[in-house]
């Protein structure tokens, strides 16, 4: 079981935080990460309209043969995305802890501009203590 990467996507579809943990995914350039995040944002918007049973908040888990993508959408439109191995079962609870760290270390920090890339030392420290090296 492993956690590969964490993304935070703002409500406009911009990637504001990206960090890799365990090895297992191809390394990409920062531009490619931005494109992927924007694509995911679009796909997520489409999935929220596709539900056959009425209103939906959009995709929550996307699984492939080699990894699993868990998406947590907040009430304000920020998306937390965790890329994990298929066997990983803690993704949802990790994302909730990440959301809490984001609310504490990012939103309460006067030197952070909302919707802009997160360059907050306190957030990095909190994420390290939550996820560590990504191996569980």
């Amino acid at each position: 079981m492993a956690i590969y990467a964490l993304w935070v996507i703002n409500k406009a579809g911009g990637l504001v935080y990206q960090r890799n943990f365990a090895d297992g995914l191809a390394q990409l350039t920062s531009n490619e990460y931005l494109v992927l995040a924007g694509t995911l944002h679009g796909i997520h918007a489409i999935t929220s309209r596709l539900s056959p049973t009425g209103s939906s908040s959009g995709a929550q888990v996307i699984e492939s043969e080699s990894f699993k993508m868990t998406i947590h959408l907040t009430a304000t439109g920020t998306k937390f995305v965790l890329l994990t191995s298929l066997a990983e079962t803690t993704a949802e609870s990790v994302l909730l802890k990440v959301y809490e760290a984001y609310a504490d270390a990012v939103m309460k920090n006067p030197f952070h501009t909302p919707e802009m890339p997160i360059r907050t030392e306190g957030f990095d420290l909190r994420i390290t203590s939550i996820i560590g090296t990504g191996h569980t």
């Binding site: 504490d104 270390a105 309460k108 920090n109 006067p110 030197f111 360059r119 907050t120 030392e121 306190g122 957030f123």
Partner: peptide
């Protein structure tokens, strides 16, 4: 919950 950016490291809130 405050992280002071590096270019302002002298600042103490």
């Amino acid at each position: 919950h405050i992280s002071v950016p590096r270019d302002m490291s002298q600042l103490s809130c």
